[in-house]
Design a binder for these strands. Sequence first.
DNA 1: ATCAAAACATGACAAAAATCATATTTTAAA
DNA 2: TTTAAAATATGATTTTTGTCATGTTTTGAT
Lengths: 225, 225
Amino acid sequence: MSKCEQCIIRQFNSLKALTKEELVRISGCKTSRIIKKGEVIFEEGDTINGVFCVKDGVCKLSKLSSNGRDQIVKLVVKGDLLGQRSLVGEESANLSAVALNDMEVCFIPKHEIMNDLQKNTKFTLDMLQQMAHDLKESDNVIVDMAQKSVKNRLADVFVYISEHFGVDDQGFLAINLSREDYANIVGTATESAIRIISQFKKEGLISTQGKQIKIENLQKLKRVE
Amino acid sequence: MSKCEQCIIRQFNSLKALTKEELVRISGCKTSRIIKKGEVIFEEGDTINGVFCVKDGVCKLSKLSSNGRDQIVKLVVKGDLLGQRSLVGEESANLSAVALNDMEVCFIPKHEIMNDLQKNTKFTLDMLQQMAHDLKESDNVIVDMAQKSVKNRLADVFVYISEHFGVDDQGFLAINLSREDYANIVGTATESAIRIISQFKKEGLISTQGKQIKIENLQKLKRVE
DNA sequence: ATCAAAACATGACAAAAATCATATTTTAAA
DNA sequence: TTTAAAATATGATTTTTGTCATGTTTTGAT
Protein backbone atom coordinates (compact mmCIF):
# COMPACT_ATOMS: atom_id res chain seq x y z
CA MET A 1 0.00 0.00 0.00
CA SER A 2 1.24 3.49 -0.82
CA LYS A 3 2.52 5.68 1.97
CA CYS A 4 0.97 8.95 3.13
CA GLU A 5 4.35 10.62 3.51
CA GLN A 6 4.95 10.06 -0.19
CA CYS A 7 1.44 10.86 -1.34
CA ILE A 8 1.18 14.14 -3.20
CA ILE A 9 -2.58 14.36 -2.64
CA ARG A 10 -2.08 15.56 0.93
CA GLN A 11 -0.61 18.80 -0.41
CA PHE A 12 -4.14 19.82 -1.29
CA ASN A 13 -5.66 19.49 2.18
CA SER A 14 -4.95 19.98 5.85
CA LEU A 15 -2.88 16.80 6.06
CA LYS A 16 -0.02 18.83 4.58
CA ALA A 17 0.39 20.41 8.01
CA LEU A 18 1.33 17.09 9.61
CA THR A 19 4.95 16.23 10.35
CA LYS A 20 6.72 13.35 8.68
CA GLU A 21 6.48 11.30 11.86
CA GLU A 22 2.76 11.88 12.13
CA LEU A 23 2.27 10.91 8.50
CA VAL A 24 4.18 7.69 8.99
CA ARG A 25 1.99 6.80 11.94
CA ILE A 26 -1.19 7.60 10.02
CA SER A 27 0.05 5.69 7.03
CA GLY A 28 0.25 2.65 9.22
CA CYS A 29 -3.40 2.71 10.24
CA LYS A 30 -5.16 4.09 7.17
CA THR A 31 -7.15 1.89 4.86
CA SER A 32 -7.36 2.43 1.13
CA ARG A 33 -10.58 1.76 -0.70
CA ILE A 34 -11.98 1.76 -4.23
CA ILE A 35 -15.51 3.06 -4.50
CA LYS A 36 -17.57 2.50 -7.61
CA LYS A 37 -19.72 5.08 -9.32
CA GLY A 38 -23.06 5.35 -7.57
CA GLU A 39 -21.83 3.66 -4.41
CA VAL A 40 -22.76 5.21 -1.07
CA ILE A 41 -19.77 6.20 1.07
CA PHE A 42 -21.83 7.19 4.07
CA GLU A 43 -25.37 8.27 4.76
CA GLU A 44 -27.07 10.97 6.76
CA GLY A 45 -27.15 9.80 10.36
CA ASP A 46 -24.20 7.41 10.03
CA THR A 47 -21.44 7.58 12.59
CA ILE A 48 -18.30 8.09 10.55
CA ASN A 49 -15.44 7.99 13.05
CA GLY A 50 -12.74 9.18 10.70
CA VAL A 51 -11.91 11.19 7.63
CA PHE A 52 -11.65 10.17 4.02
CA CYS A 53 -8.89 11.62 1.88
CA VAL A 54 -10.04 11.59 -1.74
CA LYS A 55 -7.20 10.33 -3.96
CA ASP A 56 -9.26 10.20 -7.12
CA GLY A 57 -12.81 10.76 -8.38
CA VAL A 58 -15.68 12.96 -7.31
CA CYS A 59 -18.58 12.51 -4.93
CA LYS A 60 -21.68 14.47 -4.04
CA LEU A 61 -22.73 15.48 -0.54
CA SER A 62 -26.49 15.66 -0.24
CA LYS A 63 -29.31 15.82 2.24
CA LEU A 64 -32.87 14.60 2.03
CA SER A 65 -35.32 17.45 2.46
CA SER A 66 -38.67 17.21 4.19
CA ASN A 67 -40.39 17.43 0.79
CA GLY A 68 -38.76 14.16 -0.21
CA ARG A 69 -36.22 15.64 -2.60
CA ASP A 70 -32.48 15.30 -2.31
CA GLN A 71 -30.46 18.50 -2.19
CA ILE A 72 -26.83 18.33 -3.27
CA VAL A 73 -24.87 20.69 -1.05
CA LYS A 74 -21.33 20.18 -2.28
CA LEU A 75 -19.14 18.30 -4.71
CA VAL A 76 -16.04 16.79 -3.12
CA VAL A 77 -13.08 16.23 -5.43
CA LYS A 78 -9.62 14.74 -5.61
CA GLY A 79 -7.48 16.24 -2.89
CA ASP A 80 -10.36 17.14 -0.58
CA LEU A 81 -11.00 15.67 2.82
CA LEU A 82 -14.40 14.13 3.39
CA GLY A 83 -16.08 14.00 6.78
CA GLN A 84 -13.83 16.46 8.64
CA ARG A 85 -16.74 17.39 10.84
CA SER A 86 -16.74 13.90 12.33
CA LEU A 87 -13.43 14.86 13.96
CA VAL A 88 -14.89 17.69 15.98
CA GLY A 89 -17.77 16.67 18.17
CA GLU A 90 -19.57 13.39 18.35
CA GLU A 91 -22.45 14.13 16.04
CA SER A 92 -23.47 11.77 13.26
CA ALA A 93 -23.16 12.75 9.61
CA ASN A 94 -25.48 15.52 8.48
CA LEU A 95 -25.08 14.67 4.79
CA SER A 96 -24.87 11.61 2.58
CA ALA A 97 -21.88 11.01 0.31
CA VAL A 98 -22.33 9.18 -3.01
CA ALA A 99 -19.63 8.61 -5.64
CA LEU A 100 -20.28 10.31 -9.00
CA ASN A 101 -17.58 8.27 -10.72
CA ASP A 102 -15.13 5.61 -9.66
CA MET A 103 -13.18 6.82 -6.66
CA GLU A 104 -10.12 5.97 -4.69
CA VAL A 105 -10.12 7.10 -1.08
CA CYS A 106 -8.06 6.57 2.04
CA PHE A 107 -9.80 6.30 5.37
CA ILE A 108 -8.04 7.57 8.48
CA PRO A 109 -9.63 6.51 11.78
CA LYS A 110 -10.66 9.31 14.08
CA HIS A 111 -8.75 8.06 17.12
CA GLU A 112 -5.49 8.18 15.19
CA ILE A 113 -5.84 11.72 13.94
CA MET A 114 -7.38 13.19 17.07
CA ASN A 115 -3.95 13.12 18.69
CA ASP A 116 -2.63 15.44 16.02
CA LEU A 117 -5.63 17.69 16.30
CA GLN A 118 -4.80 18.15 19.96
CA LYS A 119 -1.04 18.51 19.64
CA ASN A 120 -0.16 19.88 16.21
CA THR A 121 -1.43 23.45 16.22
CA LYS A 122 -0.43 23.95 12.61
CA PHE A 123 -2.74 21.12 11.60
CA THR A 124 -5.63 22.40 13.70
CA LEU A 125 -5.18 25.92 12.34
CA ASP A 126 -5.16 24.60 8.81
CA MET A 127 -8.42 22.76 9.43
CA LEU A 128 -9.84 25.91 10.95
CA GLN A 129 -8.82 27.83 7.86
CA GLN A 130 -10.43 25.25 5.61
CA MET A 131 -13.66 25.34 7.57
CA ALA A 132 -13.69 29.13 7.55
CA HIS A 133 -13.38 28.98 3.79
CA ASP A 134 -16.14 26.38 3.49
CA LEU A 135 -18.35 28.52 5.70
CA LYS A 136 -17.84 31.51 3.46
CA GLU A 137 -18.68 29.43 0.40
CA SER A 138 -21.81 28.11 2.12
CA ASP A 139 -22.95 31.63 2.92
CA ASN A 140 -22.52 32.56 -0.72
CA VAL A 141 -24.55 29.55 -1.80
CA ILE A 142 -27.33 30.57 0.57
CA VAL A 143 -27.44 34.02 -1.04
CA ASP A 144 -27.52 32.53 -4.53
CA MET A 145 -30.20 30.01 -3.63
CA ALA A 146 -32.35 32.73 -2.12
CA GLN A 147 -31.87 35.41 -4.75
CA LYS A 148 -31.05 33.93 -8.13
CA SER A 149 -33.46 32.31 -10.56
CA VAL A 150 -33.28 28.59 -11.29
CA LYS A 151 -31.97 29.43 -14.76
CA ASN A 152 -29.22 31.61 -13.31
CA ARG A 153 -28.22 28.96 -10.81
CA LEU A 154 -28.06 26.24 -13.45
CA ALA A 155 -25.90 28.45 -15.67
CA ASP A 156 -23.64 29.04 -12.65
CA VAL A 157 -23.32 25.30 -12.11
CA PHE A 158 -22.13 24.75 -15.68
CA VAL A 159 -19.60 27.55 -15.30
CA TYR A 160 -18.48 26.20 -11.92
CA ILE A 161 -18.01 22.68 -13.22
CA SER A 162 -16.13 23.78 -16.29
CA GLU A 163 -13.81 25.91 -14.17
CA HIS A 164 -13.26 23.37 -11.39
CA PHE A 165 -13.27 20.09 -13.29
CA GLY A 166 -12.33 21.16 -16.79
CA VAL A 167 -13.34 19.43 -20.01
CA ASP A 168 -12.35 16.19 -21.70
CA ASP A 169 -10.51 15.97 -25.03
CA GLN A 170 -13.71 16.57 -26.95
CA GLY A 171 -14.64 19.62 -24.92
CA PHE A 172 -17.36 18.00 -22.82
CA LEU A 173 -17.53 18.74 -19.09
CA ALA A 174 -15.11 16.39 -17.37
CA ILE A 175 -17.70 15.06 -14.93
CA ASN A 176 -21.02 13.72 -16.09
CA LEU A 177 -23.99 14.45 -13.92
CA SER A 178 -27.50 13.25 -14.60
CA ARG A 179 -30.19 15.83 -15.26
CA GLU A 180 -31.57 14.83 -11.88
CA ASP A 181 -28.24 15.64 -10.22
CA TYR A 182 -28.24 19.06 -11.85
CA ALA A 183 -31.78 19.60 -10.60
CA ASN A 184 -30.70 18.54 -7.11
CA ILE A 185 -27.79 20.95 -7.11
CA VAL A 186 -29.84 23.99 -8.07
CA GLY A 187 -32.87 22.84 -6.09
CA THR A 188 -35.50 22.46 -8.75
CA ALA A 189 -37.66 19.79 -10.37
CA THR A 190 -35.87 17.47 -12.78
CA GLU A 191 -38.23 18.52 -15.58
CA SER A 192 -37.41 22.16 -14.96
CA ALA A 193 -33.68 21.47 -15.21
CA ILE A 194 -34.20 19.53 -18.43
CA ARG A 195 -36.33 22.31 -19.85
CA ILE A 196 -33.69 24.95 -19.10
CA ILE A 197 -30.97 22.77 -20.58
CA SER A 198 -33.05 22.53 -23.75
CA GLN A 199 -33.45 26.28 -23.77
CA PHE A 200 -29.71 26.82 -23.30
CA LYS A 201 -29.16 24.51 -26.27
CA LYS A 202 -31.55 26.48 -28.45
CA GLU A 203 -29.83 29.70 -27.46
CA GLY A 204 -26.43 28.26 -28.32
CA LEU A 205 -25.02 28.50 -24.80
CA ILE A 206 -24.33 24.79 -24.58
CA SER A 207 -24.60 21.66 -26.71
CA THR A 208 -25.19 18.10 -25.64
CA GLN A 209 -24.49 14.56 -26.73
CA GLY A 210 -26.44 12.11 -24.66
CA LYS A 211 -25.96 13.23 -21.09
CA GLN A 212 -22.67 14.94 -21.91
CA ILE A 213 -22.64 18.72 -21.93
CA LYS A 214 -20.33 21.07 -23.79
CA ILE A 215 -20.16 24.77 -23.08
CA GLU A 216 -20.38 26.71 -26.33
CA ASN A 217 -20.54 30.25 -25.03
CA LEU A 218 -19.08 30.72 -21.57
CA GLN A 219 -19.45 34.49 -21.56
CA LYS A 220 -23.16 34.38 -22.37
CA LEU A 221 -23.62 31.62 -19.81
CA LYS A 222 -22.11 33.89 -17.19
CA ARG A 223 -24.54 36.61 -18.11
CA VAL A 224 -27.70 34.49 -17.73
CA GLU A 225 -30.16 36.00 -15.29
CA MET B 1 -14.31 49.23 32.12
CA SER B 2 -15.48 45.73 33.01
CA LYS B 3 -13.00 42.86 32.90
CA CYS B 4 -13.16 39.87 30.54
CA GLU B 5 -12.14 37.47 33.29
CA GLN B 6 -15.25 38.47 35.22
CA CYS B 7 -17.57 38.67 32.23
CA ILE B 8 -20.13 35.88 32.12
CA ILE B 9 -20.78 36.41 28.42
CA ARG B 10 -17.62 34.55 27.47
CA GLN B 11 -19.14 31.33 28.81
CA PHE B 12 -21.26 31.25 25.68
CA ASN B 13 -18.45 31.35 23.11
CA SER B 14 -14.95 30.12 22.42
CA LEU B 15 -13.40 32.69 24.76
CA LYS B 16 -14.35 30.36 27.61
CA ALA B 17 -11.42 28.19 26.56
CA LEU B 18 -8.90 30.92 27.40
CA THR B 19 -6.92 30.83 30.64
CA LYS B 20 -7.28 33.49 33.29
CA GLU B 21 -3.93 35.00 32.29
CA GLU B 22 -4.96 35.20 28.64
CA LEU B 23 -8.22 36.84 29.60
CA VAL B 24 -6.49 39.42 31.70
CA ARG B 25 -4.21 40.32 28.81
CA ILE B 26 -7.13 40.55 26.38
CA SER B 27 -9.09 42.58 28.85
CA GLY B 28 -6.31 45.13 28.75
CA CYS B 29 -6.50 45.70 25.02
CA LYS B 30 -10.18 45.25 24.24
CA THR B 31 -12.43 48.18 23.54
CA SER B 32 -16.07 48.31 24.55
CA ARG B 33 -18.61 49.95 22.30
CA ILE B 34 -22.28 50.85 22.23
CA ILE B 35 -23.92 50.41 18.84
CA LYS B 36 -27.30 51.90 18.10
CA LYS B 37 -30.14 50.18 16.28
CA GLY B 38 -29.59 50.39 12.55
CA GLU B 39 -25.91 51.20 12.85
CA VAL B 40 -23.46 49.37 10.61
CA ILE B 41 -20.80 47.41 12.50
CA PHE B 42 -18.87 46.44 9.40
CA GLU B 43 -19.57 46.05 5.73
CA GLU B 44 -18.85 43.51 3.03
CA GLY B 45 -15.29 44.09 1.91
CA ASP B 46 -14.14 45.78 5.10
CA THR B 47 -10.97 44.58 6.75
CA ILE B 48 -12.00 43.75 10.28
CA ASN B 49 -8.81 42.82 12.11
CA GLY B 50 -10.42 41.46 15.22
CA VAL B 51 -13.46 39.82 16.73
CA PHE B 52 -16.47 41.33 18.39
CA CYS B 53 -17.92 39.69 21.45
CA VAL B 54 -21.62 40.55 21.65
CA LYS B 55 -22.52 41.48 25.21
CA ASP B 56 -26.05 42.59 24.44
CA GLY B 57 -28.41 43.05 21.49
CA VAL B 58 -28.82 41.37 18.12
CA CYS B 59 -27.41 42.07 14.68
CA LYS B 60 -27.99 40.73 11.19
CA LEU B 61 -25.30 39.40 8.87
CA SER B 62 -26.23 40.02 5.27
CA LYS B 63 -24.83 40.08 1.77
CA LEU B 64 -25.84 42.08 -1.26
CA SER B 65 -26.85 39.79 -4.12
CA SER B 66 -26.23 40.51 -7.78
CA ASN B 67 -29.95 41.21 -8.23
CA GLY B 68 -29.63 44.16 -5.87
CA ARG B 69 -31.38 42.56 -2.93
CA ASP B 70 -29.89 42.00 0.49
CA GLN B 71 -29.87 38.47 1.82
CA ILE B 72 -29.73 38.00 5.58
CA VAL B 73 -27.61 34.95 6.28
CA LYS B 74 -27.54 34.84 10.05
CA LEU B 75 -28.69 36.57 13.20
CA VAL B 76 -25.94 37.08 15.76
CA VAL B 77 -27.02 37.35 19.39
CA LYS B 78 -25.79 38.05 22.88
CA GLY B 79 -22.95 35.70 23.70
CA ASP B 80 -21.91 35.09 20.09
CA LEU B 81 -18.62 36.09 18.56
CA LEU B 82 -18.80 38.24 15.43
CA GLY B 83 -16.14 38.20 12.75
CA GLN B 84 -14.29 35.02 13.79
CA ARG B 85 -13.37 34.40 10.20
CA SER B 86 -11.20 37.51 10.21
CA LEU B 87 -8.90 35.61 12.57
CA VAL B 88 -8.10 32.89 10.09
CA GLY B 89 -6.74 34.16 6.82
CA GLU B 90 -6.36 37.69 5.61
CA GLU B 91 -9.58 37.97 3.63
CA SER B 92 -11.92 40.90 4.00
CA ALA B 93 -15.43 40.48 5.38
CA ASN B 94 -17.82 38.52 3.22
CA LEU B 95 -20.91 39.83 4.98
CA SER B 96 -22.18 43.09 6.42
CA ALA B 97 -23.25 43.37 10.06
CA VAL B 98 -26.02 45.77 11.08
CA ALA B 99 -27.50 46.16 14.56
CA LEU B 100 -31.18 45.23 14.87
CA ASN B 101 -31.49 46.85 18.27
CA ASP B 102 -29.15 48.71 20.58
CA MET B 103 -26.06 46.63 21.17
CA GLU B 104 -23.11 46.44 23.46
CA VAL B 105 -20.02 44.77 22.04
CA CYS B 106 -16.38 44.33 22.95
CA PHE B 107 -13.78 44.43 20.21
CA ILE B 108 -10.65 42.32 20.59
CA PRO B 109 -7.85 43.16 18.13
CA LYS B 110 -6.68 40.31 15.95
CA HIS B 111 -3.00 40.60 16.86
CA GLU B 112 -3.81 40.09 20.52
CA ILE B 113 -5.87 36.97 20.09
CA MET B 114 -3.78 35.38 17.36
CA ASN B 115 -1.24 34.44 19.99
CA ASP B 116 -3.81 32.35 21.78
CA LEU B 117 -4.98 30.80 18.56
CA GLN B 118 -1.43 29.57 18.01
CA LYS B 119 -0.68 28.45 21.54
CA ASN B 120 -3.89 27.50 23.30
CA THR B 121 -5.06 24.35 21.59
CA LYS B 122 -8.19 24.21 23.68
CA PHE B 123 -9.19 27.61 22.31
CA THR B 124 -8.45 26.68 18.71
CA LEU B 125 -10.34 23.41 19.03
CA ASP B 126 -13.30 25.25 20.48
CA MET B 127 -13.32 27.64 17.54
CA LEU B 128 -13.06 24.67 15.20
CA GLN B 129 -16.02 23.08 16.91
CA GLN B 130 -18.02 26.28 16.62
CA MET B 131 -17.24 26.59 12.92
CA ALA B 132 -18.10 22.97 12.31
CA HIS B 133 -21.45 23.62 13.92
CA ASP B 134 -22.01 26.79 11.87
CA LEU B 135 -21.13 24.87 8.72
CA LYS B 136 -23.70 22.22 9.50
CA GLU B 137 -26.31 24.89 10.10
CA SER B 138 -25.41 26.58 6.83
CA ASP B 139 -25.80 23.33 4.93
CA ASN B 140 -29.23 22.91 6.44
CA VAL B 141 -30.18 26.44 5.44
CA ILE B 142 -29.09 25.70 1.87
CA VAL B 143 -31.37 22.68 1.78
CA ASP B 144 -34.29 24.67 3.17
CA MET B 145 -33.72 27.55 0.76
CA ALA B 146 -33.61 25.18 -2.17
CA GLN B 147 -36.49 22.93 -1.26
CA LYS B 148 -39.02 24.68 0.92
CA SER B 149 -41.66 27.17 -0.19
CA VAL B 150 -41.43 30.82 0.80
CA LYS B 151 -44.43 30.31 3.07
CA ASN B 152 -42.75 27.37 4.79
CA ARG B 153 -39.51 29.29 5.26
CA LEU B 154 -41.29 32.30 6.74
CA ALA B 155 -43.18 30.08 9.16
CA ASP B 156 -39.83 28.53 10.12
CA VAL B 157 -38.39 31.97 10.81
CA PHE B 158 -41.20 32.82 13.22
CA VAL B 159 -40.71 29.52 15.01
CA TYR B 160 -36.94 30.02 15.09
CA ILE B 161 -37.20 33.51 16.50
CA SER B 162 -39.72 32.56 19.13
CA GLU B 163 -37.54 29.66 20.23
CA HIS B 164 -34.22 31.53 20.17
CA PHE B 165 -35.24 34.99 21.31
CA GLY B 166 -38.42 34.37 23.21
CA VAL B 167 -41.31 36.76 23.65
CA ASP B 168 -41.85 39.95 25.65
CA ASP B 169 -44.30 40.35 28.54
CA GLN B 170 -47.21 40.79 26.13
CA GLY B 171 -46.31 37.71 24.12
CA PHE B 172 -44.81 39.47 21.11
CA LEU B 173 -41.59 38.18 19.57
CA ALA B 174 -38.71 39.65 21.57
CA ILE B 175 -36.93 41.07 18.53
CA ASN B 176 -38.73 43.28 16.06
CA LEU B 177 -37.80 42.85 12.45
CA SER B 178 -39.25 44.88 9.61
CA ARG B 179 -41.25 43.08 6.95
CA GLU B 180 -38.33 43.79 4.66
CA ASP B 181 -35.96 42.02 7.06
CA TYR B 182 -38.25 38.99 7.12
CA ALA B 183 -38.29 39.04 3.32
CA ASN B 184 -34.50 39.26 3.27
CA ILE B 185 -34.16 36.31 5.61
CA VAL B 186 -36.36 33.97 3.59
CA GLY B 187 -35.20 35.42 0.28
CA THR B 188 -38.38 36.79 -1.21
CA ALA B 189 -39.94 40.09 -2.24
CA THR B 190 -41.11 42.31 0.60
CA GLU B 191 -44.65 42.29 -0.78
CA SER B 192 -44.66 38.50 -0.79
CA ALA B 193 -43.57 38.40 2.86
CA ILE B 194 -46.27 40.91 3.81
CA ARG B 195 -48.87 38.93 1.88
CA ILE B 196 -47.96 35.69 3.67
CA ILE B 197 -47.98 37.45 7.05
CA SER B 198 -51.51 38.65 6.24
CA GLN B 199 -52.49 35.13 5.30
CA PHE B 200 -51.03 33.72 8.54
CA LYS B 201 -53.08 36.32 10.41
CA LYS B 202 -56.28 35.30 8.65
CA GLU B 203 -55.57 31.67 9.42
CA GLY B 204 -54.99 32.47 13.09
CA LEU B 205 -51.38 31.34 13.15
CA ILE B 206 -50.12 34.73 14.27
CA SER B 207 -51.46 38.14 15.22
CA THR B 208 -49.84 41.53 14.83
CA GLN B 209 -49.83 44.98 16.38
CA GLY B 210 -47.95 47.42 14.22
CA LYS B 211 -44.78 45.64 13.27
CA GLN B 212 -44.91 43.42 16.34
CA ILE B 213 -45.77 39.78 15.83
CA LYS B 214 -47.30 37.32 18.25
CA ILE B 215 -47.45 33.61 17.62
CA GLU B 216 -50.96 32.32 18.23
CA ASN B 217 -50.60 28.73 17.10
CA LEU B 218 -47.06 27.38 17.19
CA GLN B 219 -48.03 23.85 16.27
CA LYS B 220 -49.88 24.90 13.14
CA LEU B 221 -47.03 27.22 12.23
CA LYS B 222 -44.65 24.27 12.38
CA ARG B 223 -46.89 22.34 10.02
CA VAL B 224 -47.02 24.99 7.30
CA GLU B 225 -45.87 23.68 3.94
C1' DA C 1 -27.97 -8.21 -30.08
C1' DT C 2 -32.18 -7.79 -27.41
C1' DC C 3 -35.00 -5.90 -24.20
C1' DA C 4 -36.51 -3.70 -20.08
C1' DA C 5 -35.50 -0.07 -17.08
C1' DA C 6 -33.82 4.29 -16.45
C1' DA C 7 -33.00 8.73 -18.13
C1' DC C 8 -34.27 12.36 -21.14
C1' DA C 9 -37.65 15.34 -23.42
C1' DT C 10 -41.74 18.05 -24.09
C1' DG C 11 -46.65 19.57 -23.82
C1' DA C 12 -50.48 21.19 -21.00
C1' DC C 13 -51.81 23.01 -17.01
C1' DA C 14 -51.60 24.57 -12.02
C1' DA C 15 -49.40 26.80 -8.37
C1' DA C 16 -46.08 29.88 -6.44
C1' DA C 17 -43.86 34.01 -6.45
C1' DA C 18 -42.44 38.52 -8.58
C1' DT C 19 -43.68 42.91 -10.25
C1' DC C 20 -46.11 47.15 -10.66
C1' DA C 21 -49.54 50.16 -8.98
C1' DT C 22 -51.70 52.43 -5.36
C1' DA C 23 -53.68 53.05 -0.71
C1' DT C 24 -53.16 53.29 4.16
C1' DT C 25 -50.74 53.34 8.42
C1' DT C 26 -46.78 54.14 11.23
C1' DT C 27 -42.62 56.43 12.42
C1' DA C 28 -39.47 59.86 13.20
C1' DA C 29 -37.75 64.40 12.32
C1' DA C 30 -38.55 69.40 12.23
C1' DT D 1 -47.84 68.60 16.99
C1' DT D 2 -47.35 68.58 12.38
C1' DT D 3 -45.85 66.50 8.45
C1' DA D 4 -43.04 64.13 5.18
C1' DA D 5 -40.92 59.82 4.66
C1' DA D 6 -40.87 55.12 5.45
C1' DA D 7 -43.21 50.96 6.25
C1' DT D 8 -47.21 48.18 5.70
C1' DA D 9 -51.06 46.51 3.00
C1' DT D 10 -53.56 44.83 -0.98
C1' DG D 11 -55.15 44.38 -5.88
C1' DA D 12 -54.09 43.17 -10.66
C1' DT D 13 -51.10 41.05 -13.64
C1' DT D 14 -47.01 38.57 -15.37
C1' DT D 15 -43.34 35.49 -14.85
C1' DT D 16 -41.34 31.59 -12.93
C1' DT D 17 -41.51 27.13 -11.40
C1' DG D 18 -43.83 22.74 -10.30
C1' DT D 19 -46.75 18.84 -11.53
C1' DC D 20 -48.74 15.38 -14.28
C1' DA D 21 -48.98 13.00 -18.51
C1' DT D 22 -46.85 10.85 -22.19
C1' DG D 23 -43.50 9.80 -25.65
C1' DT D 24 -38.58 9.05 -26.99
C1' DT D 25 -33.87 7.90 -26.32
C1' DT D 26 -30.15 5.87 -23.89
C1' DT D 27 -28.14 2.49 -20.96
C1' DG D 28 -26.95 -1.70 -18.97
C1' DA D 29 -27.91 -6.45 -17.98
C1' DT D 30 -28.74 -10.84 -20.03
